[in-house]
Structures are given as structure tokens and as C-alpha cells.
């Protein structure tokens, strides 16, 4: 009798304890959102989106160039990372043999685990050094490489979840395999693939370390693709560690904009996934 009661007490105790862990973990998100909204929204104004950074010592100014710069770098990254990742994912799901697929999956995971700062070094050596200067292109290549692994895995996962019967139906109608893939399998998985791409983009949108010595930064507009380019994450970093009060205010504003952007893409993509995509791991 006593041991049974003891058992129940321990059970409730551990329920509470593990629950507390979860509360602490998930609760941090509200702290982050709260602080960013409190400090960031206060510092945010129209100037932030329309003006160039003010010279040191002057207050005011905005980060229009960094917003455009981030968009440019992310555009290039998508252009580089998504085709390779997507086609690689198609290979793994539709064509792959046993051994080579295993190797590619493993290598993809390893690439995913390479610290982002190391990617920065490599792109510096491969792109910045030969070109002779920091550029939006180099930033795009760095983030593009970082997009590949997630794109591969999500494409493979969602293609894999498409039922075999669908493919067999297409083949039975006489379609070659590639046609079956393009017109039947991929459309069936498109919601998952698009959401996966959005999540991928949201992840690299906040990356700072690989941009430090690829895109560098800029206090002015960077026309074209081959000039040092300001991006939001790098601006947050430089402004946050600066000694100027007004720059701190701007860093909060930029942080708020970045966080809202990243989290809303995440929420939209995850809701789209929850509703109606094939559940992976069939």
C-alpha cells in the first residue's frame, strides 16, 4: 500500500518537474518576443525603412540599405542553394541507389553541421580572395551553401511521403519515369516542398557569421552585386557592440524586424505543413 502511494507521489513529482523544464524552455520564447517588442517597437519608425544609416555622432537615420542588401543576398542564396538542394532531394527519393544515397545523406548531414563561420572562411578563400573584394555575390554563395542541406532533406522527406500507388498509376498510363515525377509526384508534394524552402530561407535570413567576411557591410547603398553589402543581421551585430546609445536603439529595431520576419515565415510555413501536406515518415 505504502509503496503504491509512494509510486504515485513520485509520478506526480516527476510530472511537475519535467513540466517545469518544458515551461522554462518554451517560456524563453515569450521573454525574447517581449523584450524585442518592448525595445524594438519603441525604436522603430518610418525612417528605419527609408533612410540610410546616419554618420557616427548623428542621431536618426535608418537601415534601408541593409533591408535591400539582405533581400539581395537571400535572393542569390535561394538561386544557388534551392536548385541543387531540390534536385539532390529528388535524386535521393526517386533515383538513388543504396550505397551512394547513404553517402549523400550522410554528407548532407555533415554539411548541415559545419559551423557557419567555417563556411564564411571557405567562401572568403573561394570567392572574395579571387575577386579581390567583399561582395553581395560572396554573401549569396555562403548562404546558398548553407541552404542546401535542409532543402535536400525536406525535399526527400516530402517526396518520399507520396504514396507509391500514385507513381504506379502514372507509369501504368505509359508515362516515362521523369514525367511521372514531374507531373504527378512533385505536384503531390509541392506544399511540403514550398514550406520546407520557406523554413530554409528563414533560417539563413538570420545568419550573421558567414556574412562577416563575405558580404561584409556598408554604410551606403551598394548598387550591383559586386560591392560590399549591408545586411540586417550584420548591422544588428555591429550596432549592438558599438558604444553609441542611438546605435543600440537601432539594433533593437533591426532585431525586432528580423525576428518578426523569421518567426512569421516559420509560423506560416508550419501551419501550411500541418494542414494537408502528406505526413512524412510513412
Amino acid at each position: 500500500m505504502r509503496s503504491s502511494r509512494q509510486k504515485n507521489i513520485v509520478n506526480y513529482l516527476m510530472f511537475g518537474l519535467t513540466g517545469l523544464c518544458t515551461l522554462m524552455t518554451a517560456g524563453i520564447l515569450f521573454f525574447i518576443l517581449g523584450y524585442l517588442a518592448y525595445h524594438g517597437a519603441r525604436s522603430l519608425n518610418l525612417e528605419f525603412f527609408t533612410r540610410l544609416p546616419a554618420p557616427v555622432g548623428e542621431t536618426g537615420g535608418g537601415m534601408a540599405n541593409a533591408i535591400v542588401g539582405s533581400a539581395k543576398v537571400l535572393f542569390l542564396a535561394t538561386l544557388i542553394g534551392i536548385p541543387i538542394g531540390f534536385l539532390g532531394g529528388v535524386y535521393l527519393s526517386e533515383y538513388g541507389g543504396q550505397t551512394f544515397s547513404f553517402v549523400i545523406r550522410y554528407v548532407t548531414d555533415l554539411l548541415n553541421g559545419v559551423p557557419s563561420i567555417v563556411i564564411g572562411i571557405v567562401v572568403y578563400a573561394l570567392v572574395v580572395h579571387p575577386m579581390g573584394h567583399f561582395s553581395a555575390i560572396a554573401g549569396g554563395v555562403a548562404l546558398g551553401i548553407m541552404m542546401i542541406p535542409i532543402s535536400v532533406r525536406s525535399t526527400e522527406e516530402y517526396l518520399h511521403a507520396v504514396p507509391v500507388s500514385l507513381r504506379e498509376a502514372a507509369l501504368a498510363l505509359g508515362a516515362p519515369k521523369w514525367k511521372a515525377i514531374v507531373t504527378v509526384v512533385i505536384p503531390a508534394a509541392i506544399r511540403g516542398i514550398v514550406s520546407g524552402t520557406m523554413l530554409d530561407l528563414a533560417r539563413v535570413a538570420g545568419e550573421t557569421a558567414p556574412l562577416l567576411f563575405t558580404a561584409l557591410s556598408n554604410q551606403f547603398w551598394s548598387p550591383g552585386w559586386s560591392k560590399p553589402t549591408a545586411t540586417l543581421p550584420v548591422m544588428i551585430f555591429t550596432y549592438a557592440i558599438s558604444p553609441y546609445e542611438d546605435w543600440h536603439r537601432q539594433a533593437w529595431a533591426a532585431g525586432f524586424v528580423l525576428l518578426v520576419l523569421v518567426l512569421s515565415i516559420n509560423i506560416i510555413a508550419r501551419l501550411a505543413l500541418a494542414r494537408g501536406a502528406y505526413v512524412p515518415r510513412a
Binding site: T25, A26, I28, L29, I32, L36, L199, A202, R203, A205, G206, E207, T208, A209, P233, I236, F237, A240, G255, L258, L259, V262, L263, N266, I267, R270
Partner: peptide, 12 residues
């Protein structure tokens, strides 16, 4: 919520 937390950029 925890998945969202994993998406918060490190610079933040």
C-alpha cells in the same frame, strides 16, 4: 513553441 525558438537567429 520550441520549434519556433530554434528558429530565432543567434544574433538576436
Amino acid at each position: 513553441l520550441i520549434e519556433l525558438l530554434a528558429a530565432v537567429p543567434s544574433v538576436i
